[in-house]
């Protein structure tokens, strides 16, 4: 991928020959990532898509610094990643808000953890407003819907103004309509804060709707199959011909287009 920074200067990701292996229960060494090379320009929106077992979540956790690489490494703005940091926000598939904190305290958690809450109080208010949770600051997570919780979790990840936001199927647990509304929400946040976004998803439409680049990955052996630049203006229209063409192209790479493959086993 050619490094052409989109407006932003910070948050460029360089992945250099990244290998991550696990020891399986049978004692065999299994490669979750098999020498991955990828460049993500600062300020871009990149989706990682592929079948389960292709290593896309492992790759995302490597960028977050939640797990050590076996060899190779991830570099953000030239610096090697060794542990999680506030420069890289992370939104999980489940909102994982803390049930003992109200929405406001949940969102300001990272600021408190880094002892910068006092200076950034108004940021918290701003983000509560941005994600549409004004009036729910004092509510507890269990009192709100799944979509609202997920918005709070996005606000929590973004309130510290990270250079990069990593999204691990953040909308996977939501129903179809909430999901589409939330996609617009994420797009709006990206436009507003110009954060580099890396999102893992199973949903081709979601990837096409939001991304500059779609990284198609394959399993066994896990590797990057192709990086596709999406040359469509925002806001994107899901029914547009060119949009459908991109979808067809991605599904073809993933072997899901048209022809039904012979099953490997019968039920």
């Amino acid at each position: 991928m050619v490094a052409e920074n989109i407006e932003n200067v910070k948050g460029a990701i360089h992945i250099d020959n990244l290998v991550k292996t696990f020891i399986s229960n049978e004692g065999e060494t299994v490669a979750a990532l098999n020498g991955v090379n990828l460049d993500i320009p600062a300020g871009s929106f990149v989706s990682l898509i592929g079948p389960s077992g292709c290593g896309k979540t492992t790759l995302l956790r490597q960028i977050a610094g939640l797990a050590e690489p076996t060899s190779g490494g991830v570099f953000v703005d030239g610096k090697k990643i060794t542990k999680p940091g506030a420069d890289r926000g992370f939104a999980f598939q489940q909102a994982t808000l803390f049930p003992w904190l109200n929405i406001r305290d949940n969102i300001s958690l990272g600021l408190r953890a880094r002892h910068v809450y006092k200076e950034h109080k108004q940021d918290v208010d701003e983000f509560i407003e941005t994600v549409g949770l004004k009036g729910f600051e004092k509510s507890y997570p269990h009192e709100l819907s799944g979509g609202m919780n997920q918005r709070a979790s996005l606000a929590r990840a973004l309130v510290g103004h990270p250079d990069i936001l990593l999204l691990d199927e953040p909308l996977g647990a939501l129903d179809a309509f909430t999901r589409m509304a939330m996609q617009d929400e994420i797009h709006r946040l990206w436009k507003k804060y110009k954060t580099t976004m890396v999102m893992v998803t199973h949903d081709v439409d979601e990837a096409l709707y939001l991304s500059n680049y779609v990284v198609v990955m394959k399993a066994r052996p896990s590797k990057i199959e192709q990086v596709i630049k999406i040359d469509l203006p925002f806001p994107r229209v899901r029914t547009q011909d060119t949009f459908v063409l991109y979808r067809k192209k991605i599904l073809e790479i993933l072997n899901f287009a048209g022809k039904i493959p012979e099953p490997e086993y019968y039920l």
Partner: peptide, 22 residues
């Protein structure tokens, strides 16, 4: 849940914060 600790780590929490506040 391990996720609670992972969330707090990605938010830049120290070990002490993870013990006493999470």
């Amino acid at each position: 849940p391990k996720a609670y600790f992972e969330v707090s780590r990605t938010l830049g929490a120290s070990s002490a914060f993870q013990i006493f506040r999470v």
